[in-house]
Nucleic acid binder design. Structure first.
Lengths: 232, 232
DNA sequence: ACTTAATGCGTTATTTTTACGCAAAAAGGG
DNA sequence: CCCTTTTTGCGTAAAAATAACGCATTAAGT
């Protein structure tokens, strides 16, 4: 297996390749991002995204998922690459280019295990100055998230399986930093046809009992094939 | 300067890093893509995208532009990266990951110089089976182009400075593979506010003399700042 | 007991999109 | 040369989507 320490010789200089993961979460009020505190130089003590060096026999996506699990305990996250950062001096050790990924996960999926001793969720407004060029990576990830959330039903990955319309609206408002009219949001969402009622309204339901929904991936796949776009 | 042949030793295996460029053009009727015929193994004789190994002291974008000029004579193209391909066996020589870029250029900008002896434009429907995983790269580039053209005014990079509304519509129709109503397209485009009349209609202009427009980058920048989206 | 906030289910006005009509002028064909 | 077809500019009317807001009920807070 590749990746073992030893001596590797090339006729031309090779950059090192890493992956980084910007992991977004949502606590019902604000968007959070998962950071780990670096235990070694460079940038020892600073916060950074989970990530690390790519092994010679894994793809970027595999590397991202592996590093994520090693450093935060989070397994099988649906990571998606969004940009490759290749500034010449972004790492003081050697030339390193990094394939940056993002993923949306439920807060509950990250348990503070042994590995994750130094992992912590930060609200967007309490994120400290980060190691390497991770400030720039975060800015870009947030922009990508704002764009994607408008055209792909990825927001549901941040909510529990079953959620109320208000929770969904709060999520969209937190990400996009806008306010929607509650009734228009409700109508628009339902008309899209990608939600199902999670359970029939219970018999004792009163007006104040909110309806519960879940994302319907099958319906979305159908609609998408017919050439439909979300658009918010 | 880096990049010279020699002996380079690392404690861990390093993949090689390349860039590839998917260059789109437009001849008034169909979308074209610029390919070069490989002169050496592997895939000798097969067609592929311009591109090559990244030097140790250049960014991915710089590498893409350099290789593009070396192989096709095309200078200073506005390349933009869209995906990093990292399958383990995508290159038979060694582990290679490639940062793929695209650019939109006017056909006239590519002159068949010495370097570009083997460069040729292909219509989308005459593209042969390509080297490496370049078939996959092309599919993804085309999808990205279709998305981007709807939200960013990049189409103008494919047209002459000054163009008629019909030419612009033909371009959109060729890329998106749809048909628009001529009058609705005309109204929508003008209402966006990102076109200026290239010249006052000449005195001898009759009804059949089409108006000429040019893309107004300043107006677009203004509108964009106010939070405006193109949307087609 | 009173106020405040959340939910479901609407309605109406405005804006945007879509589908066409029409006349003038050039181009093409026999 | 005459007739048909195509292209262009400038419209309009219907349809659809969006935005703004009303209201009754019920729970929660004070």
């Amino acid at each position: 297996m590749g990746g073992n320490k030893g001596t590797y010789i090339y006729q031309y200089p090779h950059p090192a390749v890493t992956t980084d993961c910007v992991i977004f979460g949502f606590d019902g009020v604000s968007i959070k991002v998962l950071l780990i505190q670096r235990g070694i130089e460079p940038f020892k003590g600073k916060w950074a995204f989970p990530g690390g060096f790519m092994k010679i026999d894994e793809t970027a996506e595999e590397c991202a998922r592996r590093e994520l699990e090693e450093e935060t305990g989070l397994k099988n996250a649906a990571v998606e690459q969004f940009y490759t950062f290749s500034d010449v001096n972004r790492d003081p050790r050697e030339r390193v280019i990094s394939v940056a990924h993002y993923a949306l996960v439920r807060l509950s999926e990250v348990k503070g295990g042994d590995d994750a001793a130094s992992a912590r969720w930060f609200s967007m407004d309490e994120v400290p100055s980060l190691a390497f060029d991770h400030d720039r990576i975060l800015r870009m990830a947030v922009n990508i998230l704002k764009e994607r959330i408008c055209f792909e039903p990825i927001g549901f990955e941040l909510l529990p399986e079953v959620f109320t319309m208000t929770e969904l609206q709060n999520l969209y408002e937190a990400i996009l930093e806008v306010k929607f009219d509650r009734r228009n949001f409700y109508n628009k969402m339902l008309k899209l046809g990608i939600l199902s009622e999670a359970e029939p309204r219970p018999a004792n339901a009163t007006r104040r009992t909110p309806s519960k929904y879940r994302f319907n991936a099958e319906k979305y796949a159908e609609l998408k094939q017919k050439g439909f776009r979300l658009e918010f």
